[in-house]
């Protein structure tokens, strides 16, 4: 699976690998939600550092993630530029003060310290969860993922859907590649230069067999699963589930602590923004 998702589980032995998937999932979800809500630069920097440390602890090699990192940086920079170009004085309106670097607050294009701080916050929000996500993806065995989802309260049917997704992505990908070649061999041109309508038709020519094969597969797989009694009871056990150990409880406690700090900061800041300009 690793190759097919570009980043994926890597068997190593660190404390992060030993933590239960549920713990990591709870950690990722709660930290990314609190980080999504807050605009407290100090707190965001804090989580960012925390996740970088975790990342370093997980002994993931840079080469494993260099590709995804490039995409993320390009995406973040592009978005920051857009945010700035569309509304250069947005920062000032948020923080309610005007500390100009250049330009006039009354003209459209200008730059203020408020804007810079705001953009820095946005940048952090785009990136703070990335190390966490990578740690999560690279240290959690895919097989354990569905069991973890179920453990944190998501119904086992939905959890198993996710397992099926992970199971069949490589197959769908291989089918896609083969089908697209088989269609070219039949004489369909799949050219990059064609107009939108032609390209849409070309795309359909490929995805049609892909979809029909997959619909057939949905039939057979659901038959295979019913024949082995999937869905008989309201619960099921998981071969790959992991019990919570001491380390898990400690980790959950730490996560709770961070979340509480985040919430307290809303109170202290009187809102989502930390305002150093006041």
């Amino acid at each position: 699976m690793a190759k097919n998702l570009f980043v994926g589980y890597n068997e190593r032995d660190t404390f992060l690998h030993r933590l239960s998937g549920s713990t990591k999932l709870i950690g990722f979800v709660s930290l990314s939600i609190i980080g999504m809500l807050t605009f407290d630069t100090r707190f965001l920097l804090g989580i960012f550092l925390f996740s970088v440390i975790l990342f370093w602890k997980s002994k993931i090699k840079f080469s494993e993630i260099s590709f995804i990192l490039k995409v993320i940086i390009a995406f973040a920079i592009f978005n920051i530029i857009l945010v700035y170009v569309f509304s250069p004085s947005y920062g000032m309106s948020i923080y309610g003060s005007q500390h100009m670097i250049f330009g006039d607050p009354n003209h459209f294009f200008n730059l203020s310290w408020e804007e810079l701080l705001y953009l820095f916050n946005v940048m952090l929000k785009y990136t703070f969860a990335v190390p966490l996500a990578l740690v999560f993806l690279l240290t959690t065995e895919p097989s354990e993922f569905a069991a973890s989802l179920n453990k944190i309260g998501i119904s086992y049917r939905i959890s198993y859907s996710v397992e099926i997704t992970l199971r069949y992505i490589p197959d769908v990908q291989r089918d896609y590649r083969t089908i697209s070649l088989a269609q070219q061999a039949r004489g369909y041109e799949i050219s990059k230069k064609a107009n939108l309508m032609t390209r849409a038709k070309g795309a359909i020519q490929i995805i049609l067999p892909l979809i029909f094969t997959s619909l057939d597969r949905i039939e057979t797989v659901s038959q295979a699963m019913s024949l082995r009694r999937f869905g008989r009871h309201n619960k099921r056990t998981w071969y790959m589930a992991r019990r919570f150990k001491m380390a898990d409880y400690l980790a959950l406690f730490l996560i709770l602590l961070i979340v509480i700090i985040g919430i307290t900061l809303f109170k202290v800041n009187n809102g989502r923004f930390w305002n150093p300009f006041k």
Binding site: V162, D171, S222, F230
Partner: peptide, 14 residues
């Protein structure tokens, strides 16, 4: 209901 689970999973993969 089994079919829905599988359709969700494979649909998501597609």
């Amino acid at each position: 209901s089994v079919q829905t689970v599988v359709a969700t999973g494979i649909g998501a993969a597609i």
